[in-house]
């Protein structure tokens, strides 16, 4: 017989983290539909499609703060949305506590690297760079 721990007896945290994370998933999801579909449309469909995308094209777009903000939001929202989704998947499926811990550490580290690197590029991109 498998013995189940007495449920829900642990001390409760009084934060509403899970609620905010739940709301964030819905809100970021809605925003991402607009941002990502818009991005795909601009990059792959509108005048000339993906063939015209090169260094100069990116430089031209990023000269405008509007597109930098767009890409920055896309980066942060998508990365956090995905990370949070994987966090819940790990919570759902990891059986052992140590597995759960290490999978999450791996996840958070990779998310951190992607965010830092991506943000760095968006802010420091220099069109005259060789």
């Amino acid at each position: 017989m498998t013995v189940i721990e007495a449920p829900r007896s642990r001390a409760r945290s009084r934060t509403s983290f899970e609620m905010y994370s739940w709301i964030f998933m819905r809100m970021s999801g809605l925003l991402l539909v607009v941002l990502v579909l818009g991005h795909l449309l601009i990059m792959n469909v509108l005048d000339g499609g993906v063939q015209r995308v090169n260094w100069g094209f990116v430089a031209g777009r990023w000269a405008s703060p509007f597109w930098r903000t767009w890409d920055l939001m896309q980066l942060w929202l998508a990365e956090l949305h995905g990370t949070n989704g994987l966090r819940t998947v790990i919570n759902d499926y990891a059986v052992r506590d140590s597995t759960r811990f290490w999978l999450k550490m791996l996840l958070y580290t990779s998310a951190f690297l992607v965010l830092v690197l991506g943000t760095l590029v968006i802010f420091t991109f220099d069109p005259s760079m060789k």
């Binding site: 449920p7 829900r8 409760r12 945290s13 899970e18 994370s21 819940t88 759902d92």
Partner: peptide
Amino acid sequence: ILNDKEGVWRCR
């Protein structure tokens, strides 16, 4: 009580 980490937000 249901705002807990093991509460309603666990529902998928």
